[in-house]
Amino acid sequence: MIDVGDGAAIPHKNDAGLFTAWRIAFFGSIVLCLFLAFGRPDQYMAIFLFVPDGILITFKVTVGAILLAIVFGLIAGLGRISSNRLINGTASLYVEIIRGVPLLVQLFYIYYALGRFVKIPDMLSAIIAMAFCYGAYMAEIFRAGIQSIPKGQMEAALSLGMSRGQAMRQVILPQAFKVVLPPIGNEFIALLKDSSLVSILAVADLLRRGREYASETFNYFETYTVIALIYLIMTLFFSKLIGIMEERLNEGR
């Protein structure tokens, strides 16, 4: 089977021993956070108490956007392999346009430019914008995943009397899902980090909370240290989780 993408790279199987890079980074960050919060409470405790609702918003935006992006990606990915020229053309146009416009510009565009015509609440607007962008990358992942399944599979399913749609749903996609899971995991981590961009839309995510705190207390060093550590803990946690899911899937092979 063709391996698409490099999977979640950090928790690598070849890492041996107690002190893997992941463990050092993950537990090191947690220990550092605890040390700062309780060892230097005067400077740091207030920051840790100020940002939790921002973590929740960051999490909501990320999860909402990745789910929606998978939907967009699957539709556009199927469109990209469609033999119907209109569907194929539309899906390809979507991928080309979105991949050619910076995410930050897309966020401004969907939020402020389209905000003139349609009224979308701020969080939803941020989620849609992120999903719209990541959907284009997801489309390519799905396209590659589906195309990685040998043609014989489809032919066999068709010769068994399945319709094309049935074959896609019951034979191709379940196999393709295994192939696309690692790169989708990577996209999830990337999206988690890029979700910090929504702070420019005044969505009160982790970064926005940090900036609010820093701009009123002027404790820039302390605040951004904490913000970076929290992002790091989140991404390391999820990359590990994705790595474990991946291993489980491989065991079933």
Partner: peptide
């Protein structure tokens, strides 16, 4: 809170 006050007014317009 917005990065620029103009963005806040624009958001109110929306």
């Amino acid at each position: 809170t917005y990065d620029e006050i103009g963005l806040a007014f624009e958001d109110m317009a929306a």
